[in-house]
Structure formats: C-alpha cells, structure tokens
Design a protein around this nucleic acid. Sequence first.
DNA 1: GCTTGACCTTGACGTTGCGTCAACCTTTAG
DNA 2: CTAAAGGTTGACGCAACGTCAAGGTCAAGC
Lengths: 255, 255
Amino acid sequence: MEETDWAIHRIAALAGTTSRTLRHYDSVGLLTPSRVAGNGYRHYDQAALVRLQRILLLRELGLGLPAIAAVLEHQESAVAALEAHVGWLRSEQERLARQIASVEETIASVLKGKNIMAENMFDGFDHTQYRDEVEERWGKDAYARGDSWWRGLGATARADWKERQAALNRDWIAAAAGGASASSPGAQELARRHVEWLASIPGTPASAPGGDVRGYVTGLGAMYVADPRFGANYGGEAGATFVRDALALYAEQNL
Amino acid sequence: MEETDWAIHRIAALAGTTSRTLRHYDSVGLLTPSRVAGNGYRHYDQAALVRLQRILLLRELGLGLPAIAAVLEHQESAVAALEAHVGWLRSEQERLARQIASVEETIASVLKGKNIMAENMFDGFDHTQYRDEVEERWGKDAYARGDSWWRGLGATARADWKERQAALNRDWIAAAAGGASASSPGAQELARRHVEWLASIPGTPASAPGGDVRGYVTGLGAMYVADPRFGANYGGEAGATFVRDALALYAEQNL
DNA sequence: GCTTGACCTTGACGTTGCGTCAACCTTTAG
DNA sequence: CTAAAGGTTGACGCAACGTCAAGGTCAAGC
C-alpha cells in the first residue's frame, strides 16, 4: 500500500487552490474527501486529485459548479455541455460589445456638450417596457415602427430629438403653471411647435402625406391625460389636461 | 402648485423599473424619495424622476451602483469614469475571448479522442501556481522558459505530451508496486524513456546540445522525492524514491 | 507535562442587485 | 363593511468562495 493520501492543505497546494475551496466543494457535494479521519480531518487520494484537476480545468473554462458536476457525472454529454457553454460565452461577449458601443457613444455625446444625461427622456417610443400597451393602443406594429425609427437614429440625432422634446415639456409645464388658458396665444404657439415636433417622427399620421393629423393630435392629447406615464412629461394630470385642450383647439382651428 | 408627485409604483412604471428597485436605491442611498408621507409611503417628484432616469441609463451601460453614485455626484469626472468603465469592459471581453478559445480547444481535443480530462495532469511546467518555487529551484527564467515552451505548443501537441507523461507515470507506479528494484531491466528501460521524454522539453539541460544531462536527471529525481507535488505523479514518496534511484543509476551508467 | 505553533474543524458574515415571499398596515372602491 | 390594491419593513436566496472567529488536534521543544 502506498501512502497516496494527502491532508487537505496538501492537495490544495498540489492542485493550486485553497483548502477553503475544497471544503466548499465538499459541502456542495462536488468533491467529497476519500477518507475522513476520526478527528474530522479530510484526506484525499489520487482519484480525488484527478477529479479535482478536472473540476479546476472546467472551472477555468468558466463553467459553474453545477455544470461541472453535470459534465463529470455524464461524461458522454461533455461535448454538448461545452458547446452550450461556448454559446453562452459568445452571447456574453456580444452583450459586452453592445455595452462598449453604448458607453463610447455616451462619452462622445457628453464630450460634444450634448447633455444626454441632463433632461427628461420620456416619450412613447424609446423605451421598450410599454411594448404591450403601445401595441394595444396604437396597433400591432406601431411599437415596431416607432422603435425601428428610434433605433435608426444616431446618438446625436437622438439627443437632438430628446432635447427638443425636453424643451417643449419645460415650456408646457411653465405655461400651465403660469395659469395661461389653453386658447391663449402662448399655448397655441406651443401646440404648433408640438405638432411640428410630432411630424418629425416618421410612420405617424402627423408625418404621413395624407394622414389624419387632426385625429391623431387630438387622440394623443387625450392619451397624455389618460396615461400618467405620458402625462408625467407635462407635470402630471393637470398639466396634461392643459396640453390636451390646447392641442385639441389648435387641431380644430388649424389642421 | 402642481401635483408633480408620484407614488412609488407610478415612477417605477414610468421609468420602466420596479418598486422593489426603488426601495433598494433608497436603502443604499442612491435615490431617496422626495417626500415620505406620514404613513411611510414614498413619493417622488420630477427631480427624482430625472435622477432615476440617469441612474437607469448608467446601469444599462453596465456600471455598478457605487460607480453610478460617484458619476452623479461628481459630474465633472463623468467622462473619466465612463472611460475607465470601457477599459474594464474591454478586459472582460478579452477574458471571454480567451475562455472561448480554450473551451473550443478542449472540445476539439475531446472529439479527437484525446482524453485531455482523463489523466493526471501534473508536471513542473504547465501550471502557474508554483512559479515562485520553480524559479527558486531552477533559476529565475526556468519558469518562463518552461511556460513559453508549453504555451507555444498547440492543443494536440500538449495532449500528446501529457499522454506520454501519463503513460510513463502509470508504468513507473506499476513497476514500483510490482516490487521491482531500481536496477532491474524494466526500471532501467523506464529511466531511458523518462530521459527521452525529458529531452522533448526545450530549454532544459536534457535537450540542450552540451547540457549536463546527468546532473539534471539526478537532481530531478531528487526533487521528485523532496517535493510531494512532483512525487504525486509517481504514487507518493515511495514511488518517487524508486524513480529517483532508477534515474540516478541510469544516469551514472549511461549519460 | 506543558506550551507553542501549525493545521484542522464547523459556523457565519460579506459580496452584487435586486426577486420573492411573509406579515402586516392604509386607502379606495363597491 | 369588506375586499382589492398597493404600501411598509424585514429577511432569505443567488455564486463561489474569502475572511474572520472560536476552538479542537497533533508533533515538537522545554
């Protein structure tokens, strides 16, 4: 009989890991000691060492402990597991690539003085979380249209568009807070700018050649009041009501 | 006064996140409610909404909450923080690229029937954790030499080399277990194969033109006994002793 | 026989960013 | 009055250990 039996610190050093890790692997059942002495000390033999080697190899490849356990139990499907893992690694890499692009875009915008992070960035098209409701309200492909339009813009164009929106929102809120009436010249001028702004979004009636601009603008105003997520842009329900009324009047008289 | 003040669920929906997240941001001090009512309910105003927008924007870029807090507090250094973040993202991407390459190499080896995961993978050169000691024993650049040699090999060559090593280890252990003496013909033949195997590693005296093969092989045998990490390849100390003696005799008589 | 030091053990907390109950109020609508 | 929403504060869970903490074991030196 050889004395092929090491204390925990030994194989740890032998395999290039720590005793804590071995205890962890024991506790999760990934690698149990080949022998536990009466005093509770863990001992490992060559077979355990080989298994440990494999575990560490797979860990270096980025697999999680459950995945490693699975690979070691069902060695036949090891290749399939590894290939699935490569797929996951690739998707992670792509995600990182997108993040890098976004961050650099942001840096460039900030350097150009475009305060991307400065204003209210709310609107009905650029955020994905309302997909279902946007589709429900405006038709199945309204969301897709709005989204593709939005994604088609460069970072600068997006920033420009958002800034025009933010300016509009500010002015609407100021006008409402100032106690102006929806029919006042100031409110009507804002309505004109608002419609102009809407017309810059392709795919809506406001920008289509023979679109029902009037109905669209009136309906949109109603939505600002009905939906607090849009109404938020205008200072809440009261502000949204003001905007709706001004838009309705403007649409009736000018569109 | 406007009623620009929303309940927690409102801004959550408004910003596309959850109330739990907002409570979390409150608890970590990243975003405190603009007002807390007598009943404990959190309320947020437009300023809070704007801040939340920025937080979520930065979060999408992959920044951690402490980093986000730092960026928002010191807006001047925002660009620097973002650039540092890009650097980290790039390093992560490189790490993933290396992992992908390794996993694919492993898959290819397994498919070729090379059981990379099947045998004892111990030797003095392929693992990095003994760098200090290898350098101490064999000189400052021994490690670097061994490592660069090893890394210069392709996956297939590595697997081949490891298999030859594993076969040698097996045979040594079998011979020692069989009770053979170090001077027996079997042991001496193993010693010959061992030296041959060593000679396949460039940068050692065994492969150098005028190297001190004799001293090298004898010293290596001593190390197998002295260091359990190497001795493990030969069935522990007894096995390593057998190998050392056989190598010493072989070196004396043939080198 | 005792001390020292090295090594072992079993907890248990910390890490990152919330998701997900759980137990318990409040407010609002019917 | 009651039920349905929605709010609150805990507290656990996740991944894989690092890092104390408190305390047993063992070989060696006095």
